[in-house]
Amino acid sequence: MTIGIPRAFLYYRYHTLWETFFEELGLDYIVSPETNKDIIARGTSHAMDESCLSSKIYTGHVDYLIDKCDYILIPRIASFANKKEIVCSKFQAIYDVIKNTYREKELKILYYSIDVHNKETELKAFLKMGKFLGKKKTQILKAYYIAKQAEKTQKMIEINNQKNVLQKDKIKILIVSHPYNIYDKYVGEPILNALKEMDCEAIIGCVVDEKHAREKAKAITPTLPWTFNKELVGSIAIYKDQVDGIILVSSFPCGPDSLVNEMIIRKIKDKPIINLILDAQEGTAGMETRIESFIDIIRLRKEKEYEEDKS
């Protein structure tokens, strides 16, 4: 039996957890390829016109996996934490959206649901999923804890690597973006490449201790309800003083980001910020120009500060 994992949305948050879990249970899996033109085209033709670019990309990855595996992994998340936190309803709905979009194909979906408000924890969800896959409880528990450990280690390594990058004597730009946008080969990587070309280092906001970041976000914007956005806002508080500028990256027309980016721009006044909106249009020239001029301004400012310090 082979499980297909769409390389989109929560993949970027959970791939270590999922992959280790399936490996420990001795299950085969495939991951859809990096986003490319074909996947975007598939997503655009099957997803609703008005849905966000990221969910079109997700649909494209699911579409790619159809007929290439036995089950497609499509989890659903309604809430992670306390009563005051929610996630974008897209993550609540995605299972049923895909199910209805591809009803005639009768997709076989491997699913789990996390809804902490209703006492459906991650552990419970994985136990259910493991049982569905025909595994014993002890086996599942063992696989889950190993996978959790792997996830934790992976995160620690990422944070440590980022610490090293923060030491570098280069212009550093904090990227505030959902991981599924900035790590996406097709829509996000061009931004990282543009920064590299200008000899800048990218500091990735979501590479952060999530819980700590969520705590930090409260001071900046107390009623912000979305867990993922809280982590991103918190990352600004954590990394801001070590970077020279901030780039906000959102896919069009992301609901939570539409409000949160505005709040960030209005509240964070001591660092230059730009807001990049990703859409499915071809060509990255416009975006590169914006990044270039943004970096130029930061450079000029830095030189000026340096001159002033000298005199």
């Binding site: 609703m48 008005e50 309803s89 897209k90």
Partner: peptide, 16 residues
């Protein structure tokens, strides 16, 4: 309203 995520997500269901 334009971009209302929960309602966009009902559309594939309404089509069925």
């Amino acid at each position: 309203s334009f971009g209302c995520t929960p309602e966009i997500d009902t559309m594939p269901v309404l089509q069925r």
